[in-house]
Amino acid sequence: MSTALLYSFGGILLIGVALHRLVLTTDLLRRVVALNVFAAGIASLLIAAAYRGPEAAADPVPHAFVLTGIVVLVSTTAAALALIRRLDDLERSVDHDT
């Protein structure tokens, strides 16, 4: 069982845990964290695919994909969290009015 395959299975388990929670939860914050865990699983798969033994240098192309993926993920998470905060403000102002 090569090291890369071990970490790939770890990544796949992360994806499984994230999908399971994503489908079941209704809480918005939990859903954001679940999507981040899902992306971490995909990133682990990519990095494990890039691993080529302790001596050989790893394949830089998947590393570039994951780097781009991390920045895209943090920006989409920021957008989702801003929407959640704004939605909370609107609903809180409705609570006070009624």
Partner: peptide
């Protein structure tokens, strides 16, 4: 884990962006 898999650049980004900034936003 990514340091272990010979991916220091990505580990650096995950440390800085992934757990740092995302944690603060959450």
């Amino acid at each position: 884990a990514w340091v272990r898999l010979q991916a220091p650049d990505v580990a650096l980004a995950e440390a800085a962006v992934g757990s740092g900034i995302t944690g603060a936003l959450l």
